[in-house]
Design a protein around this nucleic acid. Structure first.
Length: 216
DNA sequence: ACATTAATTGTGT
DNA sequence: ACACAATTAATGT
């Protein structure tokens, strides 16, 4: 057995206070791997098998779904520090390929838990089970809200919700992105996004600049 | 500092 | 959605 990595141990204590049992903290530090991704890098793609369940330590990660046939992509949600990827549970438990793609928004750091432990610890450690369940629950609620906004909201509300989530994920009111990228995430045309953004600017909700959007 | 070019954003149909 | 105009940032001279 390897010994517990002190770096991982302190990361777990800092970012995942929900995990209380120190035996579990040490178990994580023994088996987990730290992985870093540069901004824009693809972490998980469609069709990939999941080997690890990631726990996000730093940066933010964008989760998107691609339509079966074409190149159309649609934004699902962001993961930030302290979050974990609920999709990866269902995938790795069922030993199924990934239905989603995840990319690093910023430079991101995750600690990966090999799937065999994810399962094993469910029985062994109550706080692990609790952690998994509650993050599953909150992700589920967030997904429902996303579906609502796609199904029932106008584009301008969707756009505003997207901007807010992005800002929250990055802990910054200043968003660095292009209209084209937003349009891609929302599965809309770039012109429509530009026009809606300008309308939002005139309502005093945001301030536009090249490659940046300031939330007010 | 100025000109050139590429990328991003704005507008009319 | 398309075509093109205008603006801004980056790069070279």
């Amino acid at each position: 057995m390897d010994k517990a990595d002190p770096t991982i141990l302190s990361l777990v204590r800092e970012q995942f206070p929900m995990i209380t049992e120190s035996v579990l903290q040490e178990a994580i530090a023994k088996v987990a791997q730290v992985r870093t991704f540069k901004a824009g890098e693809i972490i998980m793609d469609f069709g990939n098998y999941i080997r690890m369940v990631p726990m996000v330590v730093k940066g933010s990660i964008k989760v998107v779904r691609e339509d079966d046939n074409s190149e159309r992509e649609i934004f699902l949600y962001f993961l930030g520090a302290g979050d974990t990827c609920s999709m990866s549970f269902s995938c790795c438990m069922m030993n199924k390929r990934s239905d989603i793609r995840t990319t690093a928004e910023d430079d991101a750091t995750v600690i990966g838990i090999p799937i065999k432990y994810v399962d094993e610890w469910m029985m062994k450690y109550p706080s692990w089970k609790n952690f998994i369940m509650s993050s599953y629950d909150s992700r589920m609620q967030e997904l429902v809200r996303t579906i609502d906004s796609i199904a029932f909201s106008n584009m301008d509300e969707r756009l505003l919700a997207y901007l807010n989530k992005k800002s929250e994920a990055q802990n910054s009111k200043l968003i660095q992105t292009t209209h084209q990228d937003i349009a891609h995430d929302l599965n809309a045309s770039r012109e429509a996004v530009s026009r809606l953004l300008k309308a939002l600017e005139q309502k005093g909700k945001i301030q536009l600049g090249r490659n940046k959007i300031q939330l007010l």
